[in-house]
Design a protein around this nucleic acid. Sequence first.
DNA 1: TATGAATGAGCATTCATTCAT
DNA 2: CATGAATGAATGCTCATTCAT
Lengths: 224, 224, 224, 224
Amino acid sequence: MSEHVQRSPERAKRLPRAVRERQILDAAVQVFSRYGYHSASMDEISDVAGVSKPMIYTYLGSKEDLFAQCIRREASRLLEAVESGIQPDLPPDMQLWHGLRSFYRFVADYRESWTVLHRQALAVGGSFAEEITSMRSRAIELVAALVVSAGSQKGLADQVEKSGEGLAAALVGAAESLADWWLDHSEVTDGVLASWLMNLVWLGFNDLVEGRVWTPSSSPAHNE
Amino acid sequence: MSEHVQRSPERAKRLPRAVRERQILDAAVQVFSRYGYHSASMDEISDVAGVSKPMIYTYLGSKEDLFAQCIRREASRLLEAVESGIQPDLPPDMQLWHGLRSFYRFVADYRESWTVLHRQALAVGGSFAEEITSMRSRAIELVAALVVSAGSQKGLADQVEKSGEGLAAALVGAAESLADWWLDHSEVTDGVLASWLMNLVWLGFNDLVEGRVWTPSSSPAHNE
Amino acid sequence: MSEHVQRSPERAKRLPRAVRERQILDAAVQVFSRYGYHSASMDEISDVAGVSKPMIYTYLGSKEDLFAQCIRREASRLLEAVESGIQPDLPPDMQLWHGLRSFYRFVADYRESWTVLHRQALAVGGSFAEEITSMRSRAIELVAALVVSAGSQKGLADQVEKSGEGLAAALVGAAESLADWWLDHSEVTDGVLASWLMNLVWLGFNDLVEGRVWTPSSSPAHNE
Amino acid sequence: MSEHVQRSPERAKRLPRAVRERQILDAAVQVFSRYGYHSASMDEISDVAGVSKPMIYTYLGSKEDLFAQCIRREASRLLEAVESGIQPDLPPDMQLWHGLRSFYRFVADYRESWTVLHRQALAVGGSFAEEITSMRSRAIELVAALVVSAGSQKGLADQVEKSGEGLAAALVGAAESLADWWLDHSEVTDGVLASWLMNLVWLGFNDLVEGRVWTPSSSPAHNE
DNA sequence: TATGAATGAGCATTCATTCAT
DNA sequence: CATGAATGAATGCTCATTCAT
């Protein structure tokens, strides 16, 4: 179970509290992302952090507290990364494009952060799931706003209006799923991933906005 | 923690093995979906199943085994449900359409199965993640085949060829994400969900196939 | 710290629950009386009981629960012992006399029970102290009733009326203190101890000095 | 758990050692009396004392040492208080009377000291119990001497000779018990308590009932 | 077949105690 | 003199798992 995890070589001494807290959080993210909340042991975290267990409790509180702080820190990082990649004065599609690229760069740079956020946090019931879910909801709303703003620019097709949030949820899910897929197919670049998504959902979305609609009865099997 | 879970009223006796196994698996899915793998206790499962713990071990093996069998059974059910909804002689888009509707009907009918598969199984490291991932991969490949077959009907654009699996992964993710979203917005029907997805991804995909491509430089900000 | 404590020699097997519970409670009283609530470890209790720790938790609950049940059981035993020694149709002084003898016999027979009740239970704050205090209060009231009934038989002197409970508290304390003293001076018999107390509080030290002595046979029940 | 405990507002600096030691002991008595030996934490003591933990260790040694010194200091205070209230040239009963009043005044003035001594010290096994027991023994011997001296003045009845120490133990226990009772019935004065005891043990309950009452003014020292 | 009885092993958490500054 | 930083060592408790009947 505890294969090979990076650990601080020597028990460093007398560091200021802030530094220690960062060390501990780093270690915690690493371990939580590997084993999940329940299987992760405070022993291993303290080990990886190069710090004794009591310090963890003194500085960061209980295991639950620790996990919560991991989640929050990584979620903030992710949001910041994405936001910092977006220029709000660009048109919606460019915003989405840059947002997606930033997102994938983050996933690449901080695999563990992404794993904790995406894979582990939801499985742990209670407040964590809520917290994560609410962050995800915020992301979805953000995308929905983008989608709707794009639609209104072009005359806001009915389809878009009604389904904005649903479409956004689908888009976010697609992006996440592609991120997961990427973890096992790292040969493509973040730009390629973002392109795929843009082509898949943006072109489709564009059609919608311009009045082209897919319905079961419009399928070639039926309408010719 | 243990709010209100259905439990068998009386300790029944001398049932054939197959029946017992089903009872146990049902209970296990119920409990796992509520609490997640680690927080679920064999005690509660045996309680809900109306069976003593040793029986579980005799019939289904360890907790890990039990979970694996839950996963497999529910995944099979899901796949069956989806496949049985598809008529292979229809055109690709209609197949996708029917597949999506079947998928959402399954999610609605077997919430717990879906929860176990989607939320819990990935968080548990090791063999489970692999198993789930491989099943998901199969689903993705299936969709990819659909996508590619649609592409080749129309002359297989390059974009599609290279990105088929990625697009499929994105589509599957979008469908899953929308399923999650649906759990909290049950006012729309499965048909609506499927429509959204078809409009979002199929129209977009169609554009691709027909040579319309989104690139950063084709965005209005750049080409005017 | 863990000098030499009697322990069950062999890990006995498959005993009915009631028996195990008794074993565990016996062991717990033994260990609590030796080390006090806090220093006693569940490990040692389980060891002495010849039972694994999980059984203790399954059968008797948490350490606090366990201690509470020890207290209650021993307190009940003590009360029963004292009450069974009293014949309510005797005059008050004879009742007191027999009650005291029973009390001291109990202390002699169940040293550990007495230690737990007297020495340990009060030091642990919270509900235990309250429980013990309330039992002690009941004992005091009982004695107070005796005292007052004796007083009213003789015309109820004012002093007695006003101070009944205080006197009873003092008497109970005297009895307890003498019990403690006895633990280090076991050469005298329970009868002697009871005599001392009767002479001290019933007759009065002054009387003693002047040659008046209370003996069971000088009680009104006998000497008329 | 840590409701509201007085604490030094500002971390004072550079005080002479003796002062620091007093601060710490005061805090320790306060905390030990509230929570008992085991539940009291060095952290809280240092907190209440307004001193860092290492200082405690430097000045007073281990937790055990600290507790021992609390016990000794408070016991000394108690003994001094009682002794200073006694005038050795008075007759025994008056000495007892004054001693008791001093004792109750001490209990009233230093509740915490009394609590530590009476409730906590015995429950902690090992050397503390011995120390406390030995101090209590000294008190008992003192009283015994008083009793015996009273007896010998009047011709030393046999009963007294043999049972002197036992009687004294009973008397001391009665006084302590009454002190405890007092903590919950503070409406009576220390004089009343002392009177009750004098009447109970010195004169005898029987005497009381028959109208003979001990009062300070009826003591031989005064009424002859 | 079916189960109440029993446990090994692990985990979160706490606390007295000590360095390094 | 004085302390924030740091930890070794316990301890209460839980849970998957297995016998003996």
